[in-house]
Amino acid sequence: MLEARLEQASILKKVVDAIKDLVQDCNFDCNDSGIALQAMDNSHVALVSMMLKSDTFSPFRCDRNIALGINLNSFQKVLRCAQNEDILTLKADDSPDVVSLVFESSEQDRISEYDIKLMDIDQEHLGIPDTEYAATITMPSGEFQRICRDLSALSESVAIEAEKNAVKFVCNGDIGNGAISLRNHSSVEKPEQNVNIELSEPVALTFSLKYLVNFCKASGLSGSVKLCLSNEVPLLVEYELASNSYLRFYLAPKIGD
């Protein structure tokens, strides 16, 4: 059986809020290392990969591999019934028809119990290869969100150009053009504003802003975001969570536009 207790319901609420517009039905794969999810969007150009390691939970117990097939719209409806600071416990049997969620208020003697009906989801699960990226950019997640939102007002796509010590976000639209450059920046006083660009070779790729804006819904999960780029492989957008957990998005570059 599965029993996984989260100190704060907000983590799961934010994860589901961030991915539910990309993927609708998906399996939450539970085993003794934690809870994982991998799903492609309907158009097969973007992929979500989530890993909530067992250390994220306290306690965490999962004796067997269990796949919880959940409709994310339903999941979000139930998670909205939890306060952000509630303690959240997920429970399921070894061959479950439902997943149970218990929300406990740490301040009040309130316990809320919900069940979500599970579904059989036949999802193709392909391994994501370990990749050496040509450019890895770490920047404030709020900054990346603002850039994507601003540029999406002008254009459907953005070119991300990484070169030594600088990264440029460029768009060309019907009403005009836009470009934002960020340089390596490190501050001891405000480390949350640091920008770090690691480069083995310059790389420039174009991506759909619609997807990037969608990925940025995860900004509330982490103060910084990591962008990894290489020619001819999907962009990796990673939000690191506590205990080595993560929420990752992959997006194929546009070619020939």
Binding site: L126, Y250, G256
Partner: peptide
């Protein structure tokens, strides 16, 4: 979109 799908396929299947 076809190219984008292909890039993904090659990436995931190695």
């Amino acid at each position: 979109k076809i190219f984008q799908k292909q890039i993904f396929k090659f990436f995931l299947e190695g």
